[in-house]
């Protein structure tokens, strides 16, 4: 091991640049978000106060600290609108993650059971839509679901409905859009764990007389748990803060946290309140994010 280590490029040389970059552009900004979430909005440039005193004068620092307060968090807690957005985000993220699992699992299972020649092709077919802009993928559904869209045209032509259904701008459209946008994120971890499963285990179960369904529920499904956990986290966490899907497919009643943050920032120009929403969202997601980091680190751990 020590000999092998001698063959590697020195740690400071390879670790320092990415470490510094992430500390400066990912970690440090959170401290600033936290600070601004304790500030109050102001009609100034930048639109909040107090400003950091760039001096060593203790008086100015005391004034700065006294200027901070929990006012924005009180606003968030007192207003039903924000509670509604928070609950709707978590609810829609949970429901869409379950739907993703239900839709993604049969597809991942089929990929894992395909012949060795087909598997890489199927993986590529699942990944390709992911390389297309999320904006375009959501836009495609606007054209399908709108009152004069493809779906309503087909339903009208077949005489199933008398007048166009209002699907666009509802929560149903948001769920559909979320499932569509995040499907590769669910399928790929599921496939990775199903593909690695030892087929002799399922074989043993069926040799001992288990029906295919029983074999699936008692052997295949429980063994794929790491894939289920990774896929669920990879979908749930970003969906809680998703902006594009609820903004383009949702109606005015679809208030999710990502959309709330966006409108507080861009429409109301209330930077401190937007920061407080970001802090609340981060706190809600810390547990899942740590779980995801652990799952990812375990998966990519060097062997031995």
């Amino acid at each position: 091991m020590s000999e092998a280590r001698a063959a590697a490029v020195g740690r400071p040389l390879v670790l320092f640049p990415p470490f510094l970059w992430l500390a400066l552009f990912f970690l440090a900004p959170f401290a600033i978000v936290l600070k601004i979430s304790l500030s109050e909005p102001a009609t100034a440039q930048p639109p909040y106060r107090p400003q950091l005193p760039w001096s060593l004068d203790p008086e100015r620092w005391r004034a700065f600290v006294e200027g901070l307060g929990l006012e924005n968090y009180r606003t968030l807690l007192a207003d039903d609108l924000y509670w509604g957005a928070g609950l709707a985000s978590l609810g829609l993220a949970a429901v869409s993650t379950l739907l993703l699992l239900a839709v993604g699992y049969p597809i991942a299972l089929a990929m894992a059971r395909a012949s060795a020649a087909w598997r890489p092709i199927l993986v590529a077919l699942i990944i390709v839509p992911f390389w297309t802009s999320l904006l375009i993928r959501v836009y495609a559904w606007m054209a399908i679901l709108s009152p004069e869209g493809f779906l309503n045209r087909a339903l009208l032509a077949l005489g199933i409905v008398g007048e166009p259904l209002q699907i666009l701008n509802t929560n149903a459209a948001v769920l559909l859009g979320l499932v569509y946008s995040y499907l590769p994120f669910m399928i790929l971890p599921l496939y990775a764990s199903l593909e690695r499963q030892d087929p002799t285990l399922a074989e043993a179960a069926s040799d001992l007389g288990a029906s295919p369904l029983v074999t699936f529920w008692t052997v295949t499904f429980p063994l794929s748990r790491p894939g289920i956990v990774a896929g669920a986290l990879l979908c749930f966490i970003p969906i809680v803060g998703e902006f594009i899907v609820p903004d383009l497919l949702g109606g005015s009643e679809t208030l999710m946290l990502g959309r709330t943050l966006w409108s507080e920032f861009f429409s109301n120009r209330d930077w401190p309140l937007a920061s407080a929403v970001a802090v609340v969202m981060t706190v809600l997601l810390v547990g899942p994010i740590v779980a995801y980091r652990n799952a990812e680190a375990r998966r990519l751990e060097p062997r031995g």
Binding site: L22, A28, I32, V33, G258, A274, A297
Partner: peptide, 23 residues
């Protein structure tokens, strides 16, 4: 390090975007 590395992959983009802007 792994925390800082993997978090941006799943972190909602509105949070990353807002925090970078404020920086």
């Amino acid at each position: 390090f792994t925390g800082m590395l993997y978090a941006p992959m799943v972190m909602p983009e509105v949070i990353t975007g807002l925090s970078l802007l404020l920086l």
